[in-house]
Design a protein around this nucleic acid. Sequence first.
DNA 1: GCCGTGATGGCACTCAGTTCCCTCCCGTGG
DNA 2: CCACGGGAGGGAACTGAGTGCCATCACGGC
Lengths: 240, 240
Amino acid sequence: MSSSDKAEEAAAKPPMRDALVAAAFQLFLERGYEQTTVDDIVALAGVGRRSFFRYFPSKEDVVFPDHERCLADMTAFLAASGDEDEPVRRVCDAARLVLRMYAENPAFSVQRYRLTKQVPGLRAYELSVVWRYERALAAYLRARFAGRPDGTLRADVIAAAVVAAHNNALRSWLRSDGKDDAGAAVDHALGHVQEAFAGPAGPAAERPAGDQEDVVVVVSRRGAPLWRVVQEIETTLARD
Amino acid sequence: MSSSDKAEEAAAKPPMRDALVAAAFQLFLERGYEQTTVDDIVALAGVGRRSFFRYFPSKEDVVFPDHERCLADMTAFLAASGDEDEPVRRVCDAARLVLRMYAENPAFSVQRYRLTKQVPGLRAYELSVVWRYERALAAYLRARFAGRPDGTLRADVIAAAVVAAHNNALRSWLRSDGKDDAGAAVDHALGHVQEAFAGPAGPAAERPAGDQEDVVVVVSRRGAPLWRVVQEIETTLARD
DNA sequence: GCCGTGATGGCACTCAGTTCCCTCCCGTGG
DNA sequence: CCACGGGAGGGAACTGAGTGCCATCACGGC
C-alpha cells in the first residue's frame, strides 16, 4: 500500500494541497463556510495548521484553488497573440479559457457557486479574482488601442463588457447545475458584445457573414417633418 | 471651551464618527493603512475601541464613510424614474451621482485614491462597493428589459460598461489631483457607452443639440451585416 | 557517517472583530 | 427631590485568521 501511495503522490504534484481542498469543501458543505475554522480543516486533513497557510495564503483561497493557474494561462494566451488578430475576438477567446476551467469540474464549480452565492466574504474574494481577469484583458486591449483617441477608455469598457457577458452566461450555466450547454451560452453572450463593439475604433472587424458597408439607418417616427429627418442625417454623419 | 465643543457636537450629528475618520486618515497617511491598528485610531481619537466598531463594521469601512449613503441615493434615484425615460441614459445619470459624491470632497477623494491604489485589501473592499453599484444599475435595467430576448444579458453588459466608463473617467480625474474637469470627462466616457449601446434594443438617445421632435436615429456602425440593419429597423419599429 | 536543503509540525504572537457587562448621562414621572 | 429607564460610550475577555520563529524529519550528495 505504501508503494501505491507513493505512485499517487508522484502522479499528483501536491497531494497535500488536494487533501486540504477536499477536507475544506467537505466541512464547508456540512456546516457552512463561516462555521468552519482552519483548525477544523487541518484536523480533518490530518496535517499541521501551519501547512494550510503554506499552500493557501488565506482561508478564502482554498475555495478557488485553480484561479491562479487560470489567470497565468490567460496572460500567456494574450501575450502569445500576434498583431494580425482582431483584439475583441481575442479577448473573447481569452474569456473562454475561464469557462473551460469551470467546465472541467462541473460538480465542483456548482458547489463553489452555491457557497459564494451565500457567503459575502467569498463573494468579495471572487470579485477580486474577476477583477484581475478583467485587468488582464484591459491591459491587452490598451496596448492594442494605444495611440487611438480614447483608447484606454475603449479598452476598459470592452474588457468590462466581455467579463460581464461571460459571467452572465457562466452563472446561468451554474444555476442549471451544469446541465445546459455552457459553451453555446458563452458564445451567444460574447457574440452580443462583439456585435456592439465591432466597429467604431478598430480597423473594421471582419464580419462572420455579410459585407462591410458603412450603414446608417434613420428611422423617422410617423408624423415627423421631413426637414427634421434630413437634419438628423446631417448631424449624424457630421459626427465622427 | 467646553461650550464650544458642545456647539460642535450639536452641529454635526455624529461628531464621533467624523473624529474617527479624521484620526484614521491622519494615521493612514503618516504610517500607511496596514501599519495602523484600530487601537492606534481610537487612541488618537480619544475614544474607546468598542466605539469604533459601533460606527464602522470593519476597519476598511472607515475609508469609505459615505458610500452607503450614496448607494441609497442611487437606488432611490432609479426607483423614482418613470417609464418614459431612456433606460441607458437613466443609468448614466445614476452613475453621475457617484461622481458627484467624489467631487464634493476632491482632496479627500484623492487621498483615498492613493490609499486604495497601493493597499490590496482596500482595493478588494472598493471592488465590493463598486459591485453593489453595478448590481443596482443592472437590476434597474433588467426590470426595464424584462421580456426582451437576452434582456438580462444586455442589462448586465450595459451596467458593466457604464461602471467601467465612469471609473475610467473618475480615475483619470483622481490622477490629476482633482484638477481636470471631472464632469466633462465622465460625460465624454458615458457618451461612448451610450453610443455603443444605443442600437440593438433601445432606440438611440436624442442628440444633445436640437429639439425633441419625434425623430429616432439609429446609427449602425460600419461593418454591420445587412441582416443586422434590417433587424434594427424591425425592432425599432416594433417598439412603441 | 556528515551536512545542506526542503517540507512539515508546533508554538507563540499580533490584530480584527465580537460578546458581555459596566458606567455615565439625561430626561421623565412620581 | 428622587427613582427609574434607556441610550451612548468604555472596557475586559474571547475567538479566529494570519505570521514568525524554530525544531524535526526525510532525502540526496560527499
